Every structure is written in C-alpha cells, then in structure tokens.
Amino acid sequence: MTIQPAKLTDPAVRAFVTAVNAHDRDGFLALLAPGATMADDGSDRDLDEWIDREIFSSNGHLDVDNESQGGRALLANYRNDTWGEMRTRWSFTVEDDGRISRFETGQA
C-alpha cells in the first residue's frame, strides 16, 4: 500500500518526495541545508551530480510503502529511466531549521 506524499509524517521528507515526483529541481535544492551530503549504497557521492543523474535527468519517482523513525526513514519503490524500478531505502537527517543536511539511499 503506497503512502501518498501528502500523508508523510516529516514535513522536510514530505517536501523532498513531492519535489522528486514533480521533477522540481529548484524546490528540491531549497530543501537542502548548506553543505548537504548524501550517500548511495553506503558510498558518499557528489550530491549535485547524483541528483541530476539519478533524479532530474532520468525522471526519478518515489512510491513510498513504509515510513519509520518519525518519518525520516522510508522504504520505497524508486524508478527512473536509467535503472527502471527498484526497492530502496532512504534515511534523512533534518536540521532544526527544517532543512535536510544529509540523505542516504540504497537498495533495500
């Protein structure tokens, strides 16, 4: 059962998923804290390069199945034009100002 993005618990994570699915790069970047970092399958990646390749130039889309840790950990089906669909996990570090300072993803 997919959780609609508007029903996600954490406001920053809700906005992140909404921006990914709307292909809203500017909105996505506005959610990130200065110096934000990310990792894919346990390896740190260049954030700008990764989001362009894995999300915005390849029509990335998240269908969230489950959330935990107050909405800051997701289990989701992720698809893009490069890799097709895969089962993924996402975790988020959200700062006091509501911006995301780090996210990690990988196959679930």
Rank of each mutant, 00 (worst) to 15 (best):
A73Y: 05
D81M: 02
D96Y: 06
E49M: 07
I100Y: 00
A6P: 01
T37K: 05
A19K: 02
L62Y: 02
T105Y: 03
G70D: 11
W83H: 15
N66V: 15
S68F: 08
P34Y: 06
T82E: 11
D44W: 08
L31V: 10
D65Y: 14
P5D: 11
R14T: 08
M38Y: 00
A15H: 02
E49S: 13
E49G: 13
K7Y: 04
D96S: 13
N21I: 11
I55F: 04
E54H: 14
T9H: 09
Y78W: 11
T93C: 05
F103T: 12
S68N: 12
G60K: 07
L31C: 12
V17K: 09
I51M: 06
D65I: 08
E54D: 13
P5H: 10
P34G: 04
E49R: 13
G42T: 13
T82P: 04
R89P: 00
V20P: 00
F28W: 10
D10K: 08
L47F: 08
W90K: 04
F16H: 14
T2R: 08
F56Y: 07
D65A: 14
G98A: 06
T105G: 13
A19Y: 01
E95H: 04
N66F: 14
V20F: 01
D46N: 13
T93G: 05
L31F: 10
G42I: 12
L31M: 11
E49C: 07
Q4Y: 07
Q69K: 15
A36R: 11
S101H: 05
D24R: 08
P34T: 03
G35T: 06
D63A: 15
T9K: 13
P5Q: 09
T18S: 15
D46Q: 14
I55A: 00
A33R: 12
R25F: 06
W90Y: 12
G71F: 07
A108G: 08
A73P: 00
A76E: 02
D96P: 05
F92T: 02
F16K: 13
M1P: 02
L62F: 11
G71L: 05
D10L: 04
R45T: 09
A36Y: 06
I100H: 00
V94Y: 05
S91H: 04
W90M: 01
D26E: 15
Q69S: 14
M38K: 01
W90C: 06
N59G: 02
A30V: 06
E85G: 13
A108P: 04
R14V: 10
S101P: 00
N66P: 00
T93P: 02
G70A: 06
P34C: 06
D26N: 14
D63T: 15
V13G: 08
G35W: 02
M1I: 08
A108E: 07
V94C: 02
D63P: 03
